[in-house]
């Protein structure tokens, strides 16, 4: 047998071993064994010294080719076994992915806070500031500055928790308007504000009445503010809270601090105006009160009604939430039943 045949035999044998090897250790042994310094190929090549100078390089390159082929076969086999090994390991690691995930305990904001935040975000984006005022208010700000003198008939409309003759639990967020107007520096630009907060009425709690609820007040005072601006702003509120397809209608109403005063209805979002039990078959839901600020209110706050004017609106986040989520009892908001609160996950 000449060297070439020996090499071919080694090649064939080696390839067979490689093919038949079953694990990474075996293939490693084969590599060391076949291609190592003490391996059979090296052994065979020792016989090269007996070859002619002509044949030597031929055999040399022939043996190199075989070595490379074997090395490549080992590499491929190795790769294949690695993949198999990983697959086997992963197979063992298989889990039931339908088991529940780890508990990540997250709290959520109160549903009323969510309504308020949504509205705040809307108005911040339009350049309004958010202003808060005292919950215990002076009669002066809660009533008088809002064009409601002591014997005004409309005071009947609000039953008030008094603390002293002059101090009371505010019945509306509107006093914040009066306070802000008084201090606003109109030389620095228009006044655009919203004011959310708690208000109190001397009411007996039942499904539709609560002695505590929230209001969200808005006010814009500038040199040229129109009822059309009020209408557009209210439309935005309706669309933001109740959905883009909402229409609004304005109806005349009466508030002492605005003239003209309007009541605003939105299309009933349950029946889309066709009429249903929620809207009492009118197709409309009353959602807020608004109007153009009464000149007396401007004057009392030290703002010249000949130069400035504007609009104000007030809405009830409680009522908004009740309408939006079909909540039928206002007491739910303040009893804080976890089964109630947890229904309003943040972006649900």
């Amino acid at each position: 047998m000449d060297l070439k045949e020996k090499l071919l035999e080694l090649q064939e044998k080696g390839l067979k071993q490689i093919r038949e090897s079953e694990d990474l250790k075996q293939i490693n042994d084969i590599r060391v064994n076949l291609l190592g310094k003490k391996g059979p190929i090296t052994e065979v090549l020792r016989g090269m010294k007996d070859l002619s100078a002509e044949e030597r390089p031929k055999i040399g390159s022939f043996s190199n080719a075989i070595k490379n082929e074997l090395a490549e076969a080992i590499r491929l086999k190795n790769e294949e076994l690695e993949i198999k090994k990983t697959a086997k390991k992963l197979e063992k690691e298989k889990i039931d992915v339908t088991l529940p995930g780890a508990q990540i305990q997250l709290g959520q904001p109160h549903v009323i806070a969510q309504v308020i935040e949504e509205l705040e975000d809307l108005f911040l984006g339009m350049g309004y500031q958010v202003v808060s005022g005292p919950e215990i208010e002076e009669d002066h700000y809660n009533f008088e500055m809002l064009n409601l003198p002591a014997d005004h008939p409309a005071r009947d409309m609000q039953d008030t928790f008094y603390i002293t003759k002059e101090l009371l639990m505010r019945t509306q967020t509107s006093p914040v308007q009066a306070r802000t107007m008084e201090t606003h520096d109109f030389s620095k630009g228009p006044l655009k504000m919203v004011s959310p907060g708690k208000v109190y009425r001397r009411d007996t709690d039942d499904a539709t009445h609560s002695h505590q609820f929230h209001q969200f007040e808005g006010l814009v005072i500038d040199k040229h503010v129109t009822m059309a601006d009020l209408k557009g702003t209210i439309e935005l509120i309706a669309k933001t809270v109740f959905g883009e397809e909402q229409e609004i209608r304005l109806r005349p109403s009466y508030f002492p601090f605005t003239e003209p005063s309007v009541e605003v209805d939105v299309t009933c979002f349950k029946c889309h105006g066709k009429g249903c039990s929620i809207c009492k078959y009118t197709g409309w839901l009353e959602v807020l009160g608004a109007g153009m600020v009464h000149p007396n209110v401007l004057r009392m706050a030290g703002v010249d009604p000949e130069v400035y004017g504007g609009f104000a609106f007030g809405l009830g986040p409680d009522r908004f939430a009740m309408l939006k989520y079909s909540i039928d009892d206002i007491r739910n908001f303040y009893l804080n039943d976890n089964r109630f609160l947890s229904q309003f996950t943040k972006r649900g």
């Binding site: 339009m126 040199k223 129109t226 209608r249």
Partner: peptide, 16 residues
């Protein structure tokens, strides 16, 4: 009121 247009307040910009 239905015939009154819908617009938004214009005027000087204010930071919100």
């Amino acid at each position: 009121y239905d015939n009154i247009p819908s617009t938004l307040p214009t005027g000087e910009m204010t930071p919100g």
